[in-house]
Every structure is written in structure tokens, then in C-alpha cells.
Design a binder for these strands. Structure first.
Lengths: 396, 396
DNA sequence: CTGTTAGCGCCTTCAG
DNA sequence: CTGAAGGCGCTAACAG
């Protein structure tokens, strides 16, 4: 039914081994036969049988990319960047043969010789959507392990909590043991894997400091899902900034520093916490903003877990008749493309998603030297735009 | 090094064939042995060798999803929907799985332990980013063919033009011949493949009609990349609406119907066309809006190729000090999540991206009967919101 | 129900 | 430089 390597060999009048050698290009073959084989391949429309080749060679050209939400540009940008690095081989005289793409130039890559490690073939970069489910994450990892994937890149926040962390670590260990390279991008490190982690804590801290410096004292925080590492880290940064200014995390008003949170239960009504958790989406931002302003109408600034959430919060504020940033300042996180276009342009923290993804891709292919210790921290950059300003005058 | 099926067989004291049978679950096995095998699998942390199994069975559980831009929610939503249908099996206990739909015996693998080790059957849905390059599209198709993918879903607009159309058709034919199911989602049909096409022409036409009905007569059109089918179809719909109202496509002002475009070359200066092409992104929308208003300051409405482009146009208008929709109305297309949140909320055409993607996923797995003729047209729904209104009074 | 027997298509020594 | 031979790990008929 389907044409095999043997068919090509017959057509070209050579042995299967020779065809194999021509195709994988990692072994000297006479230019004449080489051409003959290539033509036969073309004539027959031959396409290598991946499974068979993977079985025999004990490796495949599959590279898996796991994302939490494929509909979110945050992941789309990283995934796209990772894939962009999976192209055919290295810089010079790119030899992208492939069954179908005949010998590029007259002599293709003949004289090039081993310009590097090996004319690495094109990788099949593939993205898998976990939908934020730790369960599905593990499942995909197993599926990828099954395929003997060459590498796996896990992006975005991980599920927080010991059990999953442990199960993931075990899985990663097995993958690595099986020869699969594992890279984490925008995630906390895991033993055995290379990691590019974002400075979520630092970015969040500087963002809140920016607000405090402007004079804000009643700052609401719209956090992401409670069980995610990124959520926790950003919140920690925020709280650290607050603490550094002597502001108790949940103080609703201008409370004196040092006030112990667990105060009198009945006499003085417990101050409502100014942190609300929700999903990383626009609707959550909207709802959370409403909730926070209900709890504490005196809020003058809202820090959102990410840009999408921030936009939802802006919409809520608008609907309440509040002006941004005159009445309330709002900040996001990530600096996704649309943030600069929002009205008003969002003050946020820029994460170099594309650059980080590209680097992760290179690491996954072993095309770049791993950072010392296997872990690198990616800096976040403050982007101050138009959604933040000093709070309204006290007696507004 | 790695544990194989034979190891498991030995550990369980059965033959490899038996292990294979319990793992694929498509053959009766005594409950006792079955349990023994499962335990051995678990003890040894065994994971099937995908390539080997694919080779032997002549099929794999890979399903490819091709998208033009993975960072664009338009594709992310469809891809996510498609993947959501690739789950383990169907709704009830019914276990429709295996390389082909196994008999799903009376109690198949019911009594299995806790979420068995490798409940298999799960398809590995995988998305590939072509970045809008016809070349890469073909390459990915080859890569997927190499892997003997079970199915392939191509989403979004196709490259327009005979050569690519033909090459694609040939590739699709080969894939289908090799047993891979091919589904098109949001694309024009291709022989041999099932297709779910969006009513881009109709949607665009109704959108422009909406504007004309409001009283607009000088309508600018911001089109997508010229060489894409979706671009062409939407533009055709727009022009059809214009023509139906007796408005020449490129008339800059209130021109009398019937005026022949190719008029006097020097005497009467050629009216500037009111259509500008650009990428499907926000920056293009911004630039195109500027360009159109430069060409024809009297424009009272801007029709954008999609929502993202429309938002860019809105930003441009805002920067020019124009109010939406008081001075200029703006429309989008697709109805992506953020469109309803824009300020003002965007009038657009809703494409049921998620539903279409889910259906495409089911078709790809053969879980749903194909539409008659293999092609189904997906209706687009007009969503009138706040970015459109009657044009300003004549003598504004 | 379970074991046995052949390959699936390709890569990879090992000769020539 | 090229051919011949063995086996990668698993599944799919056939026996029993």
C-alpha cells in the first residue's frame, strides 16, 4: 500500500541501507547515488515511516510543549517562540531536505561537511493544552514519554502543593532517565530539568512599590487561582512590598503599622481582607474588582494578577463610574500585546515571553549551553503607562 | 535500560501477547491475570513504546492540529476545542477506544484499579503553528504523515492561489490515502477532506449592510493579507453589500451609482480606493485606519477584517481625537472574548469558534457523522453593540 | 482465555 | 563507499 524504503531502494537500484544513509545524511554517500536516491524518493513520493524509524533508532523527532491555556496569548507567545526554534538544523546552508524538498541547490549541502554536531532533522514541535489540570499534565507527559519524545518544555505556572510537585518530579526524572530533555519555562525548577523562571516575586514587588511611592495606601489585590505557583509568587511580592512600607497585608485603611491581624473578634469588626482570588481571566477580574470595592470603597489602587484580569477590573471600574487612573489606579502583569492598547494604556510588568520561549526551545534541542546550575532567572521589567497615577486628594 | 513489554510479561508470569491485550483492552482477558499484569505494569513503571506499537499496528494515536498563529486567540479557541474532544473516550462508561473502535466488551476494563496506569486510547492532540506560511503548512503535513497521524485538522484561512491550493490538495489526498482523516475547520473545502467552513462572505455582507442601513455611505475597509482565502471572502461580502446599494466599491464620496471606475486619468483625479490590506493584527489596523482617513477624511465607518484589527483601528481613531461611534463607526469580525469588553463594545460578527472546533474534533475521530457532501457551512451571527451608530449629521 | 509465531519498516554494525 | 543481516518493541493472526 504505502511506499517503503525498500521500494525506493529498488527504484534507485541500491540497497535499503544506502537510502537510509542518504536520508539521514549522517554518513558519506557518493554524490551520484545520492542524487539517484533522492530522485527515486521524489518520484515515489516517499515519506519516512516515523514510528519505524523511531523504533530502530530509539529516538524520535517529537518535541512536546505543555501549556495551561492555549487560548491565552501568554502561552501562545511562548509556544510560538519555542516552535520557532525547532526549524531545520543550524544557521548555515540550512539543509531542509525532507521527503519532498529535493536537494535544495545544485549540490545542496555537499561541501558543507559536518558544519556542526549533525544536520539535525526538522523537529515536530507540538503543543499540548493541559487546561491547567495537573492530571492532564501528567497524562500528556506519559503520552509524550510513550512517543519517546526528544524533549519536553513545560510552560507557565505549576500546580502548587506537595503531592503534585512530587508526582511531577518523579515523572520528570523518568523522562530524563529515558533520554528526553526536559525544560521548564516560566516555572519553578524541578530536579533534573533545566529551568527558566520568571521573577514573578520581584516584578510584583516593584509594581506595588511603584503604587506606594505614588502615595497609595489602600491597595486591593486580585490574585489568580490559589493553587498555582505563579499566583503565590506574585502575591508574595505584593505583600513584601506592603510589609516593607509597614502596611499590614490586609489593612483596609491607613492602619498603624504593627497592628496584629488577629485582633479582637467581636468588639472591633475584623477588617475585610483586600485580596481576592479568581481565575486568570477577564471575568474574574471584573467580579473581583466589584467585590474589593464593596469591601473597601476607599481603595485607590487595584493590583491584578495579570493583564487580562486587569482589563476585567478596568471594565468593572468603568461600569461603576470610576475613572482610571484619576479615581483608581490599576496595574497588570505580563505586558501582553493588547495591554499597551487598552484605554488607558496599562501600567504593568513586562515578561520577555518570546525571548524566554526561544531560549527554552534552544535549550530543549541542546543548541544552547544550559545556565549555571541549570536554572536561570528571567528579569521582569516595570512598564509604567497611563493606568497609574497618584491617588485622589484625601478629601476628594 | 528501559523496561519493555517482555519485562512486564515476565514479572507477571504471562506471555507478552497477554500483556499487550490487557493494555489495549480490546480482547478478553481473565480478570485475575489482568490484575496481575496491571500490577506488574505499575511496579515496573512501564510505559508503552509508542513507535513500536505504532509500527506494529500501523497506526498511531497522534492527531495534528494546524493553526496559522498560535498566539492569536482565534486559533487558540478552536485548537482548545478540538483538543477537548480528544479525551479518553465518550461520555458514559462506554469505552470506545483502541486503534479502531473495539468491541467495548460488556465490562471492558470496568473493574480496573485506580485510574489504571496507562488507560491508553487517549489521543495525543497536538497543535502545530504554521505562522501562516504555506511552506511550513506542507512541511508539518509531511511530518504528521511521517508519524502516521490518525487525523489532521487544518484551521483558519488557507493561502489563496492555484499553486498552493493544488499542492495542498495533493498532500491531503496522500494523507487520506494513507488512512489519515483530514478535517478542515474554518477553511474552504478540499477534495477528500471533511470541511466546516465559516460563512465569511455572508457575515461580512450583513455587517456592511448594517452600516449602510444606519445611513453610512463612506465606508473604509481594512482587509487582511491579500493572499488568504478568508480575506478574500470577507472582502467579497463587503463589496457585495456595497454593490447591492449601488455604491461602487472604492467610491470615496457619495458618488452616483454606475460611474465607471476607469475614468479619465488626468482630468478628474482617480478617487483613492477605500480598501487597505494588512496583517491580521492590531498594528495593521492602526496603520490602515490612519491611511484610510488620510485618503478620505469623510469616512464615517470603518469595517475591519477582524476584531484585533478593529481594536487597532479604534486606537488610531482615538489618537486622532475622533469619537466612536459618534464620529466614526467601527466593526470587527469573529467576536473574540475581548471584543465585548472593548470601549466601546465592538459591533462584530460572531463565529462559533469553540463549537466548530469541537465538531471538527469529533469528525476527526469519527465520533460524529460527516455532514452531507462532507462540507458544512457554519453560520455567522451579527452582534450589534456600541461601536456602530448612524453617521454624524451631514453638516456636522 | 492464553501462548506461539511472524513480521511491521528502518537503522546499524559488520563485511566487502 | 555500499551491501547483507539482525533486531528495535509490539501486535496480530493462529493454534492450543
Amino acid at each position: 500500500m504505502t511506499v517503503t524504503l525498500a521500494d525506493v531502494a529498488a527504484r534507485a537500484g541500491v540497497s535499503p541501507a544506502t537510502v537510509s544513509r542518504v536520508l539521514s545524511g549522517n554518513y558519506p554517500v557518493a554524490e551520484a547515488t545520492r542524487a539517484r536516491v533522492l530522485r527515486a524518493v521524489d518520484d515515489l513520493d516517499y515519506v519516512v515511516n516515523g514510528p519505524a524509524s523511531a523504533l530502530a533508532a530509539a529516538n524520535s523527532d517529537l518535541v512536546g510543549i505543555l501549556v495551561n491555556d492555549i487560548a491565552d496569548p501568554f502561552f501562545g507567545i511562548m509556544a510560538g517562540a519555542i516552535q520557532s526554534e525547532m526549524g531545520p538544523a543550524v544557521p548555515p546552508a540550512a539543509d531542509a531536505w525532507g521527503p519532498g524538498q529535493a536537494p535544495g541547490g545544485p549540490q545542496g549541502r555537499v561541501a558543507t561537511g559536518p558544519a556542526g554536531p549533525a544536520p539535525a532533522a526538522e523537529k515536530l514541535a507540538v503543543v499540548c493544552n493541559t487546561n491547567g489540570s495537573p492530571e492532564r499534565e501528567l497524562t500528556y507527559l506519559t503520552l509524550l514519554q510513550r512517543q519517546r519524545a526528544a524533549a519536553v518544555v513545560l510552560t507557565g505556572s505549576a500546580a502548587d502543593g506537595p503531592e503534585h510537585t512530587e508526582r511531577l518530579a518523579a515523572k520528570v526524572a523518568r523522562l530524563v532517565a529515558a533520554g528526553t530533555r526536559v525544560v521548564l519555562c516560566g516555572r519553578p525548577p524541578v530536579a533534573g530539568a533545566l529551568a527558566l523562571t520568571f521573577d514573578n516575586r520581584g516584578g510584583a514587588r516593584r509594581l506595588t512599590e511603584h503604587l506606594l511611592t505614588l502615595g497609595h495606601r489602600r491597595v486591593g489585590y486580585i490574585a489568580g487561582p490559589a493553587e498555582r505557583t505563579t499566583t503565590r509568587h506574585r502575591l508574595e511580592g505584593h505583600l513584601a512590598a506592603l510589609a516593607a512600607h509597614g502596611l499590614p497585608a490586609q489593612a483596609p485603611g491607613t492602619q498603624a503599622p504593627g497592628t496584629q491581624p488577629g485582633g479582637a473578634p467581636a468588639a472591633a469588626p475584623e477588617p475585610p481582607p483586600l485580596v481576592v482570588h479568581g481565575a486568570y481571566d477577564r471575568a474574574s477580574g471584573y467580579d473581583a474588582a466589584c467585590e474589593l470595592l464593596r469591601r473597601e470603597p476607599g481603595i485607590t489602587a487595584l493590583v491584578a494578577a495579570n493583564d487580562t484580569v486587569a482589563l476585567g477590573a478596568c471594565a468593572a471600574l468603568r461600569d461603576m463610574g470610576l475613572s482610571i487612573p484619576r479615581d483608581v489606579s490599576v496595574t497588570g502583569f505580563d505586558d501582553l500585546p493588547f495591554s499597551a492598547d487598552a484605554a488607558p494604556a496599562l501600567s504593568t510588568v513586562r515578561l520577555p515571553l518570546y525571548e524566554a520561549g526561544a531560549r527554552a526551545g534552544r535549550l530543549a534541542l541542546g543548541r544552547e549551553a544550559p545556565p549555571p546550575g541549570g536554572v536561570a532567572m528571567i528579569r521582569a521589567e516595570l512598564m509604567i503607562r497611563d493606568s497609574t497615577a497618584p491617588p485622589p486628594a484625601p478629601g476628594r
